[in-house]
């Protein structure tokens, strides 16, 4: 189980290698990346701050819970801190499992859970100001319906 909060750039291939297993038929990977706008405002960059030791404890608890709850083989969760430019990766979650359904479900659950309880905060910086974002606003939006 690879868990890390770091101010260094994230490498998704490291997370993929960490969860690889001969028993795996699927590895699902989620990347959180920095978007250039939020709620109609143009974002210049983001600053992530963490309570690193507690964040890693919570991420490890989430990974363990995901393995138990979804019966997946292994999970990796990496989160970056510091200043991130548009397009940079802030979060990597990787899950390996025997079959794809469990990996998809566990990966989504891990990201949702991280947004609820891992002590990490992001500040949006615009050309004319900045603001700490409070709460996982994306969780309040319903999941989009699958295409027919």
């Amino acid at each position: 189980m690879l868990i890390r909060v770091t101010d260094a750039p994230l490498d998704p291939s490291e997370a993929i290698a960490a969860v690889a297993s001969p028993a795996a038929g699927a590895i699902d990977v989620f990347l959180g990346v920095v978007r250039n706008e939020n709620l109609g405002r143009t974002v210049d960059h983001l600053v992530y701050e963490a309570y690193p030791s507690m964040a890693e404890r919570e991420m490890e608890a989430i990974a363990r819970e995901a393995c138990a709850r979804f019966g997946v083989i292994d999970c990796a969760i990496l989160h970056r801190t510091g200043r991130l430019a548009i397009g940079e990766t802030s979060l990597v979650a990787a899950v390996s499992s025997g079959h794809r359904a469990e990996a998809f479900a566990a990966c989504r659950w891990i990201v949702d859970e991280l947004k609820r309880r891992v002590p990490i905060w992001k500040k949006e910086v615009w050309s004319d100001g900045e603001e700490w974002i409070e709460g996982p606003e994306a969780l309040e939006r319903p999941a989009p319906a699958p295409p027919r």
């Binding site: 959180g32 309570y51 802030s90 309880r117 990490i120 905060w121 992001k122 709460g135 996982p136």
Partner: peptide, 26 residues
Amino acid sequence: DEEYADEDTPVPAGATLALIPPVSGG
């Protein structure tokens, strides 16, 4: 000491308390 606690939790001597505003990682 790095675990969520509620307002009623007794504070052990020498503990570290963290104030956690709504998180926004991801």
